[in-house]
Design a protein around this nucleic acid. Sequence first.
DNA 1: GTCTATAGAAAGATAGAC
DNA 2: GTCTATCTTTCTATAGAC
Lengths: 209, 209
Amino acid sequence: MAATAFSDVASIDRREEVLAAAAECFMRRGYEATSMDDVAEALGATKGRVYHHFRSKPELFFEVYRRAMAILVNGAAAAEEGGGSAAERLERVSRIHVLSMMETQTFQRSLTLGADLYRFGNAGVHKAVLEELMDIRRSYEDVFRRLFAEGNADGSLGPLDPSLAMRTVLGALNWVAIWYSPQPGETRAHRERLAEDIATQVLGGYLAG
Amino acid sequence: MAATAFSDVASIDRREEVLAAAAECFMRRGYEATSMDDVAEALGATKGRVYHHFRSKPELFFEVYRRAMAILVNGAAAAEEGGGSAAERLERVSRIHVLSMMETQTFQRSLTLGADLYRFGNAGVHKAVLEELMDIRRSYEDVFRRLFAEGNADGSLGPLDPSLAMRTVLGALNWVAIWYSPQPGETRAHRERLAEDIATQVLGGYLAG
DNA sequence: GTCTATAGAAAGATAGAC
DNA sequence: GTCTATCTTTCTATAGAC
């Protein structure tokens, strides 16, 4: 029993390594241009190892995407728990969002790749699973929409269109995953400070008063 | 003389068609995954036609990228000509920027592709040309940096870090090229209205007072 | 100017050795 | 669990017909 659990953990770690390597490759080259050999090479292995853990390239990508969304959804849930006005919760959710863009950048980059696969299609990728992925994304966007609507109601945010505000704010926050590149000697405190500055600046125009 | 000029114009139009098809393909599949056959197919031709106008895939991409940047640079120059406070000029530059994201989306999408090629490299793409492309991009970003600094000086914009403000504002504006999809029956007036709403909302937090 | 035909390399996925 | 070997398709780019 203990041996089984232990071997499960080891197996999960191996799978995790493959996922991380795949996320890195997808960020660097995009979905289609990334080959299974690329992922294997990033692992210092051959693709036998990759195919042992994932049936196909689409399945590998789906798991990277789901992981990225899970990080955002869990972060937002934790940030909302503290309570406070809609503006205060929005500020905390935005800050953790930016931090995730920096600290799990390789995974987060898969979100735009997935959106493009959904919009433009791809021979080997099943539309049904992409629909599921887009649903997760939409429900996360709804968190922001709801927070803007609540802010209208509790007076902590100015009068605004929740959908447009969600798009402009998430645009500014998501863009961090595009330009951010970790600096040598950078600490978590640096990233937290940057995330705070960005969230403050982005939300400045939406606060009441 | 007239015949020569006429044939030049026709030749330029052909080249333009190839460029537009390439921009579309690069948006849909990314740089690496786009094949010269894809571009040819989008033209309803074979790749003989593509290679007649462009020596190689990198050269084709470079031209798409330069075209995208030229649209932005010319738009910003026109928007600044009207004069006014830094805030007023920033608002006009932002509006035309968003309009360009919508109306020349296929070209504008090449800008993030180019940034990734620069950052992560690619076997067939010469670093030197990518450096040139990044320089054009940086000088365009400087327009926004300068406008924020001028706004600090003339009092039309609140006190802020011009570089951070440039990144958050351009992030929100650039994100339009990611999510925007032209709607059936959509008119130019619709897009202008949307561009105005987005620019107003994004810049709301940066205005003085 | 645009086509067909072709080269050499690399892709996703599977089979079977270890 | 990971490797090597392999099948089939597709890639960039060129050569030469029309």
